[in-house]
Nucleic acid binder design. Structure first.
Length: 477
RNA sequence: CGGGGUGUAGCGCAGUUGGCAAGCGCACCGCGUUUGGGACGCGGGGGUCGGCGGUUCAAGUCCGCCCACCCCGACCA
């Protein structure tokens, strides 16, 4: 905890981000470059993300399992695009128990290969399908440039891996998960993501095609916040995952994979945070309500604390924290919990005891008043309503910010200007050459091709040929 | 891996042309006074000055090599 002010977001956004993460005690740097320690407050936030996703997976028939972290090197080599995509960033174990290993083992960068290997053993009949397995795991990718939560050498995520009898079922699964991710982001995290198809150059190594949810951060850069891949039969063929159909014909399965990682914590921070620090959406906040008792002496303390205890039990259905530290002043606590993003603060002092009320302060101030007096009667309901209001206000604010920073360029010059400080929604012919030239010119990349496409797209912003899609193009993390 | 930069207490820094006992702010510990928007006083603990080698009566300071980290590019959930 520090008393110094944070850097302003519009002056140094990345420094603001780094400091918020560390000062709010979400995470800290580990001794190995690019690795981070997720601290209890950050992990609690991640656990709430996990709970929101896990419940939705299970409600749609998925089950959890755990596969090993070490994968034989030869497995990676079985799928050509996959190994080409991941080879540069693999961590490889060559020594075990002091002995040189017969075959090097890869620390999983993702688990398609080892899961494919196991599915080949488990799937024999159309009656075994579909297989709908998810795992919560850590993976390692040796990235060049790392940022806390956004890109670390080791990160935590869930990876779903499913196998189906037909292309159609696999595609439905891929899209179903994309919907789940979208709903979770919007409903629980209040992050207004845009779902869509990735271009071929942006798709997952080894996929037929990939979908993603794209979110706009507070500096208008895009963050890919979740992906869902239709792997076709690529991995089925590489790992011989075959089954007999009802007509006794041998068929390859169709597989999917999909993931949301601890990067999503970064999305929450950068979607909602302000110059005072974190702002957490109530549905995911580790602490939804913080209670600050205020007193000057023992006499006042003995008046205030019983009321605090009463409030605590009244609010037992919420995630409540009592800050009873005596070594810091109330003013310090106000700033501290605001920096840490707690949605609602209740101040309880002698005046409140007198009035049978509490002073409530919202972290995010949408309207005019910051603080309001709440009567003790019916406190549970009032807090419930306030948290719901805050959740809704955060979403609306994020939507408004996003929409005010997406523009449709009329020509390439204007396009270049737009992507310096926002997203362009524009037409593209589908040619990767145009994508590459745009990236060269502006550092912006195609983020996604939204699912609802107009009949007429006009002409490609880059080459002027008839366009195939409307796409979002932006600079990304 | 290419270009640039930085290493002095947990964090941020000062330390002049080499020279007395390596300092300051924050944080931390103790005592007391405080407490409705980032309290204050007094006392205290904490350092192989990134590493190795060299020059010198004397190196945080000069020289050489190495290491680590950060920023910008290529790569990326």
């Amino acid at each position: 905890m520090s008393e110094e002010k944070l850097p302003k977001r519009n002056e140094n956004y990345s420094e603001w981000y780094n400091q918020v993460v560390q000062r709010a005690e979400l995470a800290d740097y580990a001794p190995v470059r690019g690795c981070m320690v997720i601290r209890p407050y950050g992990w609690a936030l991640w656990e709430n993300v996990q709970a929101g996703l896990d419940g939705r997976f299970k409600a749609t028939g998925h089950v959890n399992a755990a596969f090993p972290m070490l994968i034989p090197m030869s497995f990676l080599e079985k799928e050509k695009e996959h190994v080409e995509g991941f080879a540069p960033e693999l961590a490889i174990v060559t020594i075990g128990g002091g002995e040189q290993l017969e075959e090097p083992l890869v620390v999983r960068p993702t688990s398609e290969t080892i899961i494919g290997h196991m599915y080949a053993k488990w799937i024999k009949s159309y009656r075994d399908l579909p297989v709908l397995i998810n795992q919560w795991a850590n993976v390692v990718r040796w990235e060049m440039r790392t940022r806390l939560f956004l890109r670390t050498l080791e990160f935590y995520w869930q990876e779903g891996h499913t196998a189906h009898a037909t292309y159609k079922e696999a595609e439905e699964e891929t899209r179903k998960i994309l919907d789940i991710y979208t709903q979770f982001a919007i409903d629980d995290a209040a992050v207004p993501v845009i779902p869509g198809l990735k271009s071929d150059s942006e798709k997952f190594a080894g996929a037929l095609h990939s979908y993603s949810i794209e979110a706009m951060m507070g500096d208008t850069r895009a963050l890919q916040s979740g992906t869902s891949h239709n792997l076709g039969q690529n991995f089925a063929k590489a790992f011989d995952i075959q089954y007999l159909d009802a007509n006794n014909q041998l068929q390859y399965v169709w597989t999917t994979s999909w993931g949301v990682s601890t990067r999503f914590v970064g999305a929450i921070i950068m979607t909602h945070g302000d110059d005072q620090g974190l702002i957490l959406p109530p549905r995911l906040a580790p602490i939804q309500v913080v209670i600050i008792p205020i007193y000057r002496d023992e006499a006042e303390r003995s008046q205030v604390m019983p009321v605090v205890a009463h409030i605590q039990s009244e609010l037992s259905g919420f995630r409540v924290k009592l800050d009873d530290r005596s070594e810091v002043t109330p003013g310090f606590k106000f700033n501290d919990w605001e920096m840490r993003g707690v949605p609602l603060r209740l101040e309880v002092g002698p005046k409140d005891v007198q009035n049978r009320s509490v002073m409530a302060a919202r972290r995010h101030i949408s309207g005019k008043t910051g603080k309001s007096l709440l009567p003790l009667e019916g406190l549970h309901t009032q807090v419930k309503n306030l948290l719901a209001e805050i959740q809704a206000a955060l979403y609306e604010r994020a939507v408004a910010f996003r929409d005010s920073n997406i523009h449709e360029p009329r020509d390439y010059d204007q396009f270049k200007e737009i992507v310096q400080n926002g997203w362009a929604f524009t037409a593209w012919c589908g040619n990767p050459v145009c994508e590459a030239s745009i990236k060269q010119d502006t550092k912006a990349t195609t983020r996604c091709i939204p699912l609802d496409q107009p009949k007429e797209c006009g002409v490609c912003i880059s080459c002027g040929e008839p366009a195939k899609y409307k796409v979002y193009i932006a600079r990304a993390y």
